[in-house]
Simulated scan of single mutants.
Amino acid sequence: MDVTHKARGVLASAREAAGRVLPGRAAEKNPLDPSRPGPHGVSQTLTIARPPQEVLTACRDPRVLSRLLGDLGRVETGEGDRITFVLSSEGEEMSVDTRAVEREDGVEFRRLADPVAGDGDAEVARPEDDTEGGPTGAAGESALLAVRVLPAPRDLGSEVRFELDLPAGAVAFTLLYRLRALLQTGEIPTLRPQPAAREEDR
């Protein structure tokens, strides 16, 4: 299954869907704005045959998160505890500044409050998103990505749940699929053509 292709397609087509999903934003030039919360959260759960602590350690590492995103984007560290998700869609890049917040059962990457227009030093508090779709934290913050890790039944490893506040369910599955492959095999699968050792006679 080409989950990367499917995820890219969903993320790219989300611009059109966002006009219906995000009320009042259809007229904007870029309705898919991952820096702002909305009632469009998705979640996926997968069993990974690794201990919960190992899974959590991987999910906290920006380098691992960048590998999971692949051609969908990257994750960068900034000053202090700032972690920036740079998401790619149709040749455009959209940045979301977050901070990692530890939870008893996982970690959340919560959006930082937006600067007030015309005042780069002040920040505006964003009301909590109390919809079912978006995981939330303190007032003015909502989680772009929330990771929940619990022991799987019958000692099968970990039950890992990704909650992603974007109208793109396939992306959440892609990240989990790649995380499982990376932790269980040490590699992330790819369908890109590989150089052949010999020429075909065809």
Rank of each mutant, 00 (worst) to 15 (best):
R15Y: 12
R15N: 13
R15D: 14
E16L: 15
A17Q: 10
V21Y: 05
A27P: 02
K29S: 15
L32D: 00
D33K: 07
R36E: 10
P37C: 08
G38I: 02
H40F: 05
G41K: 04
V42M: 03
T45S: 14
P51G: 09
E54I: 07
L56Q: 01
C59K: 05
R60F: 04
R60G: 04
D61W: 07
P62T: 09
G70H: 13
D71K: 13
L72P: 01
V75F: 03
I83M: 03
F85K: 00
F85M: 08
L87S: 00
E92P: 03
E93C: 11
E93V: 11
V96E: 03
T98N: 00
R99Q: 08
V107Q: 06
V107A: 03
R111T: 08
L112H: 05
P115W: 07
V116W: 08
G118W: 06
G118I: 11
G120I: 12
G120S: 14
E123N: 09
E123L: 14
V124D: 15
A125E: 14
P127Y: 07
E128K: 12
D130H: 13
D130L: 15
G133A: 11
G134T: 09
P135D: 04
T136Y: 04
T136M: 02
G137R: 09
G140E: 00
A143M: 04
A146W: 01
R148K: 12
R148C: 01
V149A: 03
A152S: 13
P153H: 07
P153C: 05
D155C: 09
D155A: 14
S158G: 10
E159S: 14
F162H: 05
D165E: 13
D165Q: 09
A168W: 01
A168V: 11
A170V: 13
V171N: 00
F173S: 06
F173E: 08
R178I: 12
R180D: 04
L182K: 05
L183A: 04
T185P: 00
T185M: 10
E187R: 11
P189F: 07
L191C: 01
R192F: 11
R192L: 12
Q194L: 14
P195E: 04
A197R: 13
A197N: 12
R202W: 09
